[in-house]
Write a protein that binds this DNA or RNA. Sequence first.
DNA 1: TTAGTATATGAACAGTTATTCATATATTGA
DNA 2: TCAATATATGAATAACTGTTCATATACTAA
Lengths: 116, 116
Amino acid sequence: MASCDHETEHHLAAKAARENMPDEEAILRVSAAFKAISEPSRLKILFALRQGEMCVFHIVEAVGGTQSAVSHQLRILRDNRVIKARRDGQNIVYSLADEHVVAVLELACTHLNCKI
Amino acid sequence: MASCDHETEHHLAAKAARENMPDEEAILRVSAAFKAISEPSRLKILFALRQGEMCVFHIVEAVGGTQSAVSHQLRILRDNRVIKARRDGQNIVYSLADEHVVAVLELACTHLNCKI
DNA sequence: TTAGTATATGAACAGTTATTCATATATTGA
DNA sequence: TCAATATATGAATAACTGTTCATATACTAA
């Protein structure tokens, strides 16, 4: 491989791409965030939290699985700022971090023709 | 675990969550799409293609790595409708599937305070 | 058809990740 | 303080995924 019929335009695009490529740290941050929301078990938690904030017990009730597994998933979502937590007595109450999360989910579903 | 201080509201939310949970197929489709865009090597391809369509040679030039690795990544992105391809002579020219892709990337970067 | 170029792909290995199990921490009420 | 409840977490294993290497396919030009 060496060139193509659009050598000039593509080469310029490639050059611009290298110059405008986000730095490694930004790439890793975005990567980790998408990875956080890309697992079926965690996606279910997000879809569940669209209905409103919930404590762990009720998240388990909503999505199934064990308390331990859900807790591990919650930590990953929380570490990536997809959800937020507040303590309320003995419980930790989780909710979606902000409106960006819902927006991304809805964009994806629109794009893929999924009804949610 | 059995209940919490917000038993009623959370239980209702959990019930609504179960009732409104997308079916397994939709969950898997969304999951696969986010998984596709959640790998640093593939994210780089997407950021590169923001500059315009490119053939494989120039994508390799833009993001680095081997032709084989890039080809494998392109297939995953294509299978998940994140990018689209058209043949142009000996070359396959790739581009972002539609404006949803850019929108999702920008939402994520806004959310995470990354400049792109 | 043959040679050359561009791209794709199967298999294997290495690295990553989700779940389970056991246990730890934190809060509440007695 | 102690017991009970809610949640979190470390370690281990099993499943998954990205890359590499070798090779295959597809197109072009001669």
